[in-house]
Simulated assay, not measured.
Amino acid sequence: MSVVVVPYNPEWPSYFEKIKAELTSYLVDVEILSIEHVGSTSVPGLAAKPIIDIDIIVTRSNVQPAIDALVNASFLNLGELGITDRHALKDPNQSPKRNIYVCVADAFQTRNHLALRDTLRSNPSLRDEYAAVKLQLAAEDTNIIDYISGKSFIVQKILKAAGLLNDDELVAIKKANSGRGTFGATKTERLLLREFIMDDVQPLSELEGKAEVVRYQTRPPWTREQAWEEVGEIIRDATVIPRSHIELAVEHEKRFIGRVGAKIKRDGEDGALIKVPHADLWYSFEPEYQGKGYATEAMKKFIELLPKPLELEIECDPRNTGSWKLAERLEFEKISLIEKAFKCKGEWVDSLVYQKRI
């Protein structure tokens, strides 16, 4: 999924005002200091991704009331996503597309957004230099993870020119802009593995909404709302250290075609750390990409990226020949076959377990 950067649209300020009015109606019982249009769409003349970024600025004591009010209005709370004092929420209304943040007044991340905007508004030279970097990255078909990292140096230059952040704060922002998540974007011969973003809700919904994709799973096909919640959970969990839920989107020729994931358990039943953490693995792919080696290619790379040492496990319904054959191609060892281990869609099914240590 490549980043799209477009010329400045003079309608963006009016889009912001409309969204601001909507937000104000949801937050009528919360004390708000200000609602600010930030990001590149807030700078006249600046090329940008066509997404309206908005900071709802409140005192620390009003952060939770603001979040609660928006959640009651069906917003998805994504949490801080590794950036302290900036709480991301996803508006179910994405026409036009928008990012909404509840921000603590005077926190350096809030000052970062405002300093970047105000400096670019007042410095045409830096604005044009920033635009050139973004347009170049977009022209190179850069994915969103590498795009954020690729423009980090010019963001640092702009913030230094603003002079409102100290050295430690600049370092923290540079770290945050180095690419969210541990893995960034990784290429194989045919595929791209990358962190999930909210734009993945629709393709994930289409994938996991197919009866044939979830045929051997205990759950029914997902609705779009369930995919929305799932992507939110994946994004939130990507910022937890140490990371226990690792899940990456898989692209082929810029199209989302599947996902690979792992849940890592590091402690035993008594709460003590276990010597070798245990990871349950899973994957799912669009039917048209099954049987062509894409899952094997993706899982090989995914396993290389995982922290070590690990005891890996793939459990599957033996009727799912594609799953256990993939485990064997990945050189997993067959550990057990338990008959009538659990119920799946109204019938008792067996459980086949493969393991491998890395």
Rank of each mutant, 00 (worst) to 15 (best):
G79Q: 05
L159S: 11
R111V: 09
T188D: 01
R127H: 06
V104W: 00
Q94L: 07
A115K: 06
I54H: 11
I144C: 03
N93D: 06
A73I: 09
D128Y: 13
V58E: 08
A132E: 15
G184F: 00
I154P: 12
K90D: 14
T110I: 01
R60I: 08
A107F: 01
I158F: 04
L116H: 09
A73M: 12
C103A: 05
V155H: 10
N166M: 09
I148A: 12
P65Q: 13
N77H: 05
L135S: 15
N77E: 09
L191Y: 03
V133C: 12
T186W: 03
K90A: 14
V58F: 02
L164A: 14
P50E: 00
N143I: 04
L120W: 04
A176N: 15
Q136E: 12
A66C: 04
R127C: 05
D91Y: 01
N112A: 04
L120S: 04
K90E: 14
R117A: 04
I144Q: 01
D118P: 01
L78R: 09
D53Q: 10
G163V: 02
V155R: 13
D53A: 11
V63F: 04
P65F: 06
T110E: 01
H113N: 13
P92G: 12
L114N: 07
L114F: 02
V104N: 00
L192W: 02
K175I: 15
E189Y: 00
L164N: 14
V102R: 04
P96T: 01
L135V: 15
D128L: 11
F108Q: 09
S152F: 01
V155Q: 14
S149K: 12
L164F: 09
H113C: 10
Q136I: 02
T182D: 00
D168R: 09
D141S: 09
Q156D: 15
A132H: 15
I54R: 12
S149R: 13
I83P: 02
